[in-house]
Simulated assay, not measured.
Amino acid sequence: MKRSFIIPTLLILLLSVQIINADVQSQNSVLHQHSIEIERCINNGIRKADSLVKTGKPDEALTYYKSSLKSKDSLYNLITNSQMEEILSLYNMDKLILQREQRHSMFHQTCLYISVIIILALLLSNIHIYRSRKRLQKNEKEIRRLTSIAEEANEIKSHFLTNMSYNIRILLNNVVGFSQLMTEDGNLNEKEKREYSGIIQSNSAELIQLVNNVLDLSRLEANMMKFQLQNCNVQEWCNELPYLVQMRSEGYIHLVLQADVDNAIIYTDVSRFTQIISSMLLYPVECKKPRRIGMQLVYNQEKQEINFRIDNSPLADSAFASQKEAILQKINLLFFEHFNGSYRVENCENNPIIFFTYPALIT
């Protein structure tokens, strides 16, 4: 649109310049002829005046001299006016040429601006496409990673369910089998009945504990565990822990406790917290072997947390590795992570160590 408008304008300017040049040339030619005629008349007048002077008629010669000078002045004025008109014409012509060049320059600048805008638009479009492609690649990589995690989790869960089904089936078979023996076999004496009854009770208790652990694990994984939260003085809690461990282990576990906690306070479910700690200090299965366990507590005021360390924990001992032990480890991990703590297990030179932290309140 702009280009179709500019081209006719340039043609008109060119025609105008040509017309002006033609007019100037015609005027110059007319002026030149008129100047020649005036100059010829002046020369004739001067020759006549010179002849009259020679013939002794100075008064008449003076008239011709004056007429020639007057004609020469008019000639000079004519030439001056002609030159002024020529200068004005050249000025107008230069002005038209300048306007033409300005329009030319404006057209080029407009084309340049449009080209720059198009290049910037293409560049931004390429950047957007590049970023979109990178984002898609990142999302695809994340989807593959999550898919791999989900498949691994499903495999672990399937393995877990298989082992749980096996363990539950064994316990149920023991309970059902010995119950049938007690009800169907009338020849059992009192000693055998007490023995079978003890087996049924122990298997029933273990089955209930296993089911409760599985339910607790499911609630923690779904973040649906309900806690009775309250403030707990760590030092007072530590004073009662050794006696609790000795009583529940029937004296087979000797706990050496070192607590440097000042007056630290934690906000927790005391019953559940005690149960979690006890699972690390007691045998995960029935065992009558004496065991010495070291436990250290340090209050880190800078991080506002309690650092725990348990040495020679039965729960972390590979000798007691089982499905029940794995469930308890998972429950402990999820419990401390729920309260913004940490939990990890290390084996250093056959010495199983459990490290965990729990946030403390600012006192």
Rank of each mutant, 00 (worst) to 15 (best):
L11R: 06
L13E: 08
L14N: 02
Q18G: 06
A22I: 10
A22K: 12
D23W: 04
V24M: 06
V24Q: 07
S26I: 13
N28E: 11
N28P: 01
S29P: 13
V30L: 04
L31P: 05
L31G: 05
C41T: 12
N44I: 12
G45F: 15
R47A: 07
K48V: 00
A49T: 07
A49E: 04
L52Y: 08
V53W: 09
K57E: 10
P58M: 05
A61K: 07
T63Y: 07
Y64H: 08
S68N: 09
K72E: 06
D73R: 09
S74E: 13
I79R: 11
E85K: 07
E85M: 12
S89Y: 06
K95F: 04
L96M: 08
Q99G: 00
R100F: 08
Q102W: 12
C111L: 13
S115H: 09
I117D: 12
L120M: 06
L120V: 03
A121P: 08
A121R: 02
L123W: 04
L124S: 01
S125G: 14
H128F: 10
I129E: 14
I129D: 13
S132H: 05
R135N: 14
L136M: 14
K138A: 10
N139D: 10
K141Y: 13
E142C: 12
E142W: 09
R145L: 15
L146S: 15
A150I: 13
E151H: 06
A153F: 08
A153N: 14
E155A: 15
S158I: 12
H159S: 15
F160G: 03
T162N: 14
M164E: 03
R169D: 05
I170V: 03
L172E: 05
N173R: 01
G177C: 11
Q180A: 10
Q180N: 00
M182H: 05
T183F: 09
G186W: 13
N189K: 08
Q201S: 09
Q201Y: 11
A205D: 07
E206Q: 06
Q209I: 12
L210E: 13
N212H: 13
R219N: 10
L220N: 01
Q228Y: 06
Q230N: 13
N231C: 10
C232T: 15
C232I: 12
E236A: 14
W237K: 11
C238F: 08
N239Y: 11
Q246H: 12
V256H: 14
V256K: 15
A259D: 15
D260I: 14
A264Y: 13
I265M: 03
S271C: 12
F273Y: 07
T274R: 11
I277H: 08
I277M: 05
S279A: 01
S279T: 02
S279M: 01
L282H: 01
P290T: 03
M295G: 00
M295I: 03
L297K: 01
N300Y: 01
E302F: 04
F308E: 00
R309E: 02
S313G: 05
P314V: 02
L315S: 10
A316D: 03
A319G: 09
A321C: 09
E325I: 11
I327G: 05
L328M: 07
I331P: 02
N332Y: 04
N332K: 05
L334W: 05
E337I: 00
S342F: 03
N347M: 06
N347Q: 03
C348K: 07
P352G: 02
P352Q: 01
I354K: 08
F356C: 02
P359Y: 00
A360G: 02
T363C: 12
